[in-house]
Design a protein around this nucleic acid. Structure first.
Length: 196
DNA sequence: AATGCTCCCAACCGCAACTAT
DNA sequence: CATAGTTGCGGTTGGGAGCAT
């Protein structure tokens, strides 16, 4: 099956969003609630944008619960740990961090944590990045069990959920409802504590 | 003060998966 | 069941801001 073009690129605006466009999109979503059809949204909202672009803008920037920057050590730890377990499944990782988006997490990893992790490079995809970040990723059996088993029920261990054999298989659309909340990681030692 | 370099973030692109008909 | 349309995802890039020389 061929890929349907998402929009006529020649006739829609691209590039940075203006405050007016943001407001149009924001007010449309506010007044209509959940967007059922992003392709049709630009027309209805009076935006000369690709529906895909509108969706991205809303999800990554305009959503009211979005947090920008100010990553905590705990969030670092979650990202590193999950990256180690499941790789670059940014949407899954972001789902564990309330207020964070996959794009945001991805950017944060690429610009900050990858360096922390010891300069993971494309040339040598690291099974387990080194240094500070690595300490989040491969918790000792004792700390790991105390950390993940404190989670109630189904979403206990990412290591188990996303073992290499699982990684090999496509995850498809991951059901975030089965994912453990961030609070699961609150039981994990802080990097400061781990380092001391 | 001017120029060049590096870093960071927002946005785009293309593909795969999912859903409706 | 097959096809078309839509959504979601991950990789990549362009441009601005800040820093160093």
């Amino acid at each position: 099956m061929g890929r349907a073009p998402c929009c006529d690129k020649a006739s829609v605006k691209r590039g940075p969003w203006s405050p007016e466009e943001d407001e149009l999109l924001r007010s449309y979503v506010r007044s209509h609630g959940a967007v059922g059809n992003w392709i049709a949204l630009p027309q209805k909202a009076g935006l000369n944008r690709c529906g895909k672009s509108c969706r991205l803008r809303w999800l990554n920037y305009l959503r009211p619960d979005i947090k920008h920057g100010g990553y905590t050590e705990q969030e670092d730890m979650v990202i590193c740990s999950l990256y180690n377990s499941i790789g670059s499944r940014w949407s899954i990782i972001a789902s564990k961090l309330p207020g964070r988006t996959d794009n945001d997490v991805k950017n944060y990893w690429n610009t900050k944590l990858k360096k922390k992790a010891g300069g993971a490079t494309i040339a040598t995809p690291p099974p387990a990045p080194q240094s500070q970040c690595a300490s989040y990723m491969q918790p000792s059996p004792a700390s790991a069990s105390s950390a993940v088993t404190t989670a109630s029920g189904d979403a206990g261990s990412f290591g188990a959920m996303y073992s290499p054999s699982h990684q090999a298989a496509p995850l498809g659309h991951y059901n975030v409802n089965t994912a453990a909340p961030l609070a699961e990681f609150s039981a994990m030692p802080t990097p400061a504590a781990a380092n001391s």
